[in-house]
Amino acid sequence: MVAKRIIPCLDVKDGRTVKGINFVGLKDVGDAVELGRKYAAEGADELVYLDISATLDGRRTFTELVSRIAAGIDIPFTVGGGISSLEDAARLLDAGADKISINSAALRNPDLIGQIASHYGSQFVVVAIDAKCIDGTWHATTHGGTVPTDKELFSWAREAQERGAGEILFTSMNHDGTRSGYPCDTFAALADTLSIPIIASGGAGSVTDIADVLTEGKADAALAASIFHYGEIPIPVLKRELVKQNINVRI
């Protein structure tokens, strides 16, 4: 059986990672390659690098960084942030990214999913959905969850799959940053709707939260940032605990 995946997410601004304060033995926690290598050595199954640069210069620096990541890291990695065209995707593929993640651009222009998938394969395209539950309905949102769209989570995820997405990265904006756990019933319903893998993001505060979303929530992977960056739950500890709960992870 394919193992459940644990994926640290690193935010990158102007070519430097912006979180990650508690690592002993790292010369430069801002160095995205070194931090990624550290996570890989600890047992991360994949990495996600999210470009949060606001400037064109920042974006250019990110592409150069992607080349260095590809050269230095021996596990798969996804890049996201600001990808809005086939050309953006091609540039990052050429730099060595294994997958790209698209979010707002896919909402604005759903054809983009199919364009990228038909050129580079579905395995290259992750569609990220930041959804917020408003009066019982999950709306896909933009701008960090502040702007709801008319796309409903389940139908949008199905549409993304039909258009060629290889994975769905779902973040509940009601739970993101709360550390109160994931909405497992929503994740499970989403898994029943889709045939492609689901990455759960946003809300993990404990090992139990992650275990729950991988079992009850039927997610294929769990992505997190702060619990790893601040060393609260080291990946080896997390994986050992998941193994104890009979969850199939790579050790």
Partner: peptide, 13 residues
């Protein structure tokens, strides 16, 4: 089996 997702993507033994 709906739990067997395709593509087969990820780490397997």
């Amino acid at each position: 089996d709906p739990a067997v997702k395709i593509p087969h993507m990820g780490w397997n033994s």
